[in-house]
Design a protein around this nucleic acid. Structure first.
Ligand SMILES: [Zn+2]
Ligand SMILES: [Zn+2]
Ligand SMILES: [Zn+2]
Ligand SMILES: [Zn+2]
Lengths: 151, 151
DNA sequence: TAGTGTCTTGATATTTTATAACTTTAAGGG
DNA sequence: CCCTTAAAGTTATAAAATATCAAGACACTA
């Protein structure tokens, strides 16, 4: 992840989510907002139980369903993606357009880059069709070393 | 999965594994053989605990590490792939050449088709490079409906 | 404003998936 | 046969996710 103002980064994500929910008439409750914020605070994949720990700081410990339900909502709305190979979650870089995320994962620094490339989607859909399958969705998670870490 | 003689299917997988291990001087023990057989018996992804149950039939119940260690070996040797999105395991369709598996998963019948297409690998590697990442490995799991189930 | 239905969150318990750590057994080389 | 190492057994626990029921918040309307 290149240098950036991360506070602004978080703020943008929260504002975008707020607006999208208003437009869709879905409820961006304080809890959901807080969980989305926590997903963004760490600019890396975060696990449900890490979120749970952060959420519990300075108050009665929350239970797992609280976190999982909020994550379900955020994923459903397209604000968060799940990284299957890491049992973790990341904020979506393009929440305005619901989509399936395709990811690059750095095995050194754990940073994740989301690829929003139509051509990649097209190739994957074509592969499904070529093998006689209809296409519903796909997960693509590429492990490698990011540019920063190679220098 | 099209009609086929599944007993033969299993037998082929076991024979191939046996020969590859002999060539590599790795140990294809009775337990590992049995676990590989169980992975193949169900021509669908199978979970570690399903294997555990089958393995325990008619004898003292085996413990999880027994299964997970056998699976680790089989994956390492390239005889089995893990399906991340299902926490499950499938036999590899081309064990002679170690590789990363790319899969089509039918959401109706749960059948899985392994794609061994170089062009797909090339596109994925190119996507990594285009985003500044080196390539180590990748998982691609496409969900859809197979040809059989659509008819 | 009280009643009603729906969505959200809280709370408790349990299930599912996976690994750590240590012991015992088996295999292979001299 | 002795020694070393790899494999399998054993016990316990960690990590990830879900089921179920209760309580609260909210909006609609009667
Ligand atoms: Zn996204
Ligand atoms: Zn990196
Ligand atoms: Zn394969
Ligand atoms: Zn099918």
């Amino acid at each position: 992840m290149l240098k950036h103002n991360h506070d602004e980064c978080i703020e943008n994500a929260l504002t975008a989510a707020q607006e999208i929910c208003a437009a869709r008439d879905t409820r961006f409750t304080p809890l959901r907002r807080r969980v989305l914020e926590l997903v963004w605070v760490k600019h890396e994949p975060i696990t449900a139980y890490e979120i749970l720990d952060l959420l519990s700081e300075g108050q009665k410990r929350v239970a797992p369903p609280t976190v999982y339900r909020a994550l379900d909502f955020l994923i459903e709305e397209g604000f968060v993606h799940r990284i299957e190979s890491l049992n973790s979650f990341v904020g979506c870089s393009d929440p305005a357009h619901k989509h399936q995320g395709h990811f690059l994962i750095c095995t050194k620094c754990s940073n994740v880059t989301e690829m929003n490339e139509q051509s990649l989607h097209d190739v994957i859909k074509a592969a499904a069709k070529a093998n006689g399958y209809s296409y519903e969705n796909s997960i693509l998670e590429i492990a490698g070393i990011c540019e920063n870490c190679r220098n």
